[in-house]
Design a protein around this nucleic acid. Structure first.
Lengths: 345, 345
DNA sequence: TCGCTTAAGTGGAACGTTCCCAATCACGAG
DNA sequence: CTCGTGATTGGGAACGTTCCACTTAAGCGA
């Protein structure tokens, strides 16, 4: 009883309900939890007493004795991102379906490894029954000590460690898919804004796949390194230095949008003079107003499959496939067109 | 010990740590919680034992005895919305600053009142110490029974009930602010896509303020009712039936975007032939590519003020202002211009 | 009527902490 | 030498629930 409770009425317990109903706490427990047999008349009396007192089960006490919290912990780097926002919502919904809650912990804004570790530790303190990691950055070694104790699933990126299941959208397939589309439009000299493999577990392979497929099918590729402190202006300048280039592939919608802005500033017509592709197809960017061409990841599916895998692990059944690579789809917008349309624009 | 635990190692407890360190559980408790005095040498021994065993505090047991969970429950209708996504993140960050966690419950997608009630009940079961309601729809009467037991703050909309504190961005000020901007651009005949007061606690007063200010300053106003199943095509048609109209004010960015798409389909130049304003200025819609003119709510501030109010209530200090109306800002984009610019476009 | 079976209800232990109180110890003052 | 004092330490109760082992009552066939 700390001073925080002062003035606030204490929550009624099953013992209060038992007194009011004139039975023992055991009976109340059985009525509330629905386990064990109780006479119908008594049952009604207990329910009435509970309602009169405004009794609400104490999940904390229940979790304590049952050794179960029915809670899954989700770590997300940045929940404000549309991608992760959607993913979280999808996971929450699917978890509710299975009778679980999702409690999220975030990396606290800053990009410190210690923060992320503390976030995971907080989840462990809360005795979540499993862990979902949604982050393109947190390295496997950081996750492993927790994965040893808790069923752990990584969502949104492939994970190579055998102890950790992952559910994601195949980056190689997506990158190649967009590349194929660009090639089929007729482009032969194409810039790819790349991200180093080491900086992002998802975007690295993605741009590698783009460039790889383009080269494999005979196109000329200009790789423009898009560093962390990404300056779209520099990319635009670099692209425009090569007049033969008719299309630019960006590693994400966000990159693509920044690039489109720079191109507009420079008076470059899109897709008239230059085609631009993105990657993610989320939020309002796919609206016809921008109409970004790119790849769409099945976020809802990633979310529900992730939770399904978690539940499978919890139920101790046959563990799910280690790597679930889900198929994405090409979104054809209006920012990429055939290069022969030059004069039409 | 349920079958869910099978095979999984039990978490070590302070008693395990005590055995290993050769002390009593009380000493371990004091070391872990930092309360009470412990000899330095003993302290080190306990810490070492804890580290060796991989001990992690059990927040469940701690909450049980302390009657405190350091958890605030947030109810959000739809966390996937950029507005609520941002708000949640802001609240989470501020709560962490105060030493609290935020656990969210959502309306489970469907629009059933019973779902929302169940969501709030789930939070009550978890013994959250306070409630934050983020929803433009949940009526006060639904919230009251919980507010009677739990400090409750409504975020993002004004709340008239004396028991409930609310933090929001003043809709009247915002609506009028955008209206002023449109007037100052020189428009005199303006359409407002309205939302009935009853359907949305936020958008109703917002559009009312827009129309009100416009009329007050002598403009002619055409109100176009934007029903639930909003069809932007109909609004566009309606606006175009009145050739004198030079600007359309939408109740939200989402509405504005839909309208812009329809206008583009009909070949109407924006802002050349028609100016369009939105409201929210969130996410990627403010990018120069769309450049929606509208009103920006200080989401981060709403989030942090909300949490601050919650903490004040929890600390039993002077309760915060009942209604905190925070100021928004006008965002001048490229979708609204002076009507005289007609021939220039 | 007696014993057996089954349903209904009771009380206590356990879960892992924190907190309170008592016990121990060292040490300096009287 | 004894006693008080302050710093450590240990033991037990309590938190609110579930579960288990028991008791009690009732029903029923022989």
């Amino acid at each position: 009883m700390t001073d925080r409770d002062r003035g606030r009425p204490r929550n009624p317990t099953i013992i209060d309900v038992a007194h009011r109903a004139g039975v023992s706490k055991s009976v109340v427990s059985r009525v509330i939890s629905g386990r064990g047999s109780v006479g119908e008349e008594t049952r009604q009396r207990v329910l009435r007493a509970a309602a009169e007192l405004g009794y609400v089960v104490n999940a904390v006490a229940r979790a304590m004795v049952a050794h179960r919290t029915y809670t899954v912990g989700a770590f997300v780097r940045d929940a404000a991102t549309p991608f992760y926002g959607h993913l979280l919502t999808a996971m929450q919904e699917r978890a509710a379906f299975h009778g679980y809650r999702v409690v999220t912990a975030t990396g606290s804004g800053r990009f410190e490894v210690s923060d992320e570790y503390r976030a995971l530790e907080t989840l462990a303190m809360l005795r979540v029954e499993a862990l979902i990691v949604c982050s393109g950055m947190l390295p496997s070694e950081q996750i492993l000590p927790f994965a040893a104790r808790l069923p752990t699933v990584v969502a949104g990126r492939p994970e190579t460690h055998p102890n950790i299941t992952s559910v994601y959208c195949d980056e190689a397939e997506g990158g190649a898919g967009v590349a194929d589309h660009v090639l089929e439009l007729g482009h032969r000299e194409i810039a790819v804004v790349t991200v180093p493999m080491s900086s992002s577990v998802t975007m690295g392979p993605r741009t590698a796949a783009m460039a790889g497929r383009l080269r494999k099918r005979g196109a000329r590729v200009l790789e423009i390194p898009g560093a962390r402190g990404e300056s779209a202006g520099a990319w635009a300048t670099e692209v425009l230095r090569h007049p033969g280039i008719t299309a630019v592939m960006a590693p994400s919608d966000r990159h693509a949008i920044a690039l489109l802005e720079q191109l507009r500033l420079r008076g470059v017509a899109v897709p008239g003079q230059l085609s631009v592709t993105g990657y993610d197809a989320i939020g309002d960017l796919t609206t016809p107003l921008i109409g970004l061409t790119g790849w769409r990841q099945p976020i809802d599916l990633i979310g529900s499959r992730t939770v399904d895998a978690v539940v499978q692990l919890l139920d101790g059944e046959q563990p799910p496939d280690h790597h679930q690579a889900l198929p994405g789809t090409l979104v054809v917008g209006t920012t990429a067109a055939s290069p022969t349309a030059d004069d039409i624009d």
